[in-house]
């Protein structure tokens, strides 16, 4: 008696999957599906829905003496404020290259990290920064102003008290 009836098969041939092996296939596919959906959950969790950062709106009172061409940088904020004949406007001081804070320099701003330079209205004049410094939304609030670091406005937007 032979142990393995039928045509001889090489150990290297793939084994045919029995068509009635329902349970086996079901467990295989349910595992695969469960893993897939699990992955969605795992991938979704680390993407925060609510950001923990503090409010980006703040109120400032500009110094009386602030004249055209001068800049006012409120402490602890990433904003430069200007006032000229047409009104008040705010330029972000976060470098558009890789997020360092630009410093005031001759003719505008310069970034300490990789040497980008910007003119006073935010235009890039030198270095790797890909975008001009954005202008931020300013609203007049009874003699003072509210600046929203989270909202950009088109360059040139100025506000009167």
């Amino acid at each position: 008696m032979t142990l393995h009836p039928g045509p001889t098969r090489s150990r290297l041939d793939p084994e045919p999957v029995p068509r009635r092996d329902m349970l086996g296939l079901a467990s295989l596919w349910s595992t695969a599906l469960a893993m897939l959906f699990g992955m969605f959950g795992i991938a979704r969790l680390p993407k925060a829905a609510v950001l923990s950062s503090p409010s980006k709106k703040f109120r400032v009172t500009l110094p009386e003496t602030l004249g055209p061409g001068e800049v006012f940088m409120p402490a602890g904020r990433k904003v430069a404020l200007f006032r000229d004949a047409e009104g008040v406007y705010a330029v972000s001081t976060v470098c558009t290259h890789l997020g360092c804070l630009v410093k005031q320099a001759e003719g505008g701003f310069e970034c300490p990290c990789h040497g980008s330079k910007f003119s006073a209205d935010g235009t890039v004049t030198k270095g790797p920064a890909p975008q001009p410094l954005p202008w931020l939304k300013v609203t007049a609030a009874g003699g003072a102003f509210t600046v929203d670091e989270g909202e950009m406005v088109p360059p040139g937007t100025k506000v009167n008290a």
């Binding site: 680390p46 993407k47 925060a48 950001l51 923990s52 950062s53």
Partner: peptide
């Protein structure tokens, strides 16, 4: 998206440190 996933927030803060 990459930055948000890395920092867990829109700036480097406590969420980022934990991550």
């Amino acid at each position: 998206l990459q930055r948000l996933l890395l920092l867990g927030s829109d700036e480097v803060g406590s969420e980022s440190l934990i991550r």
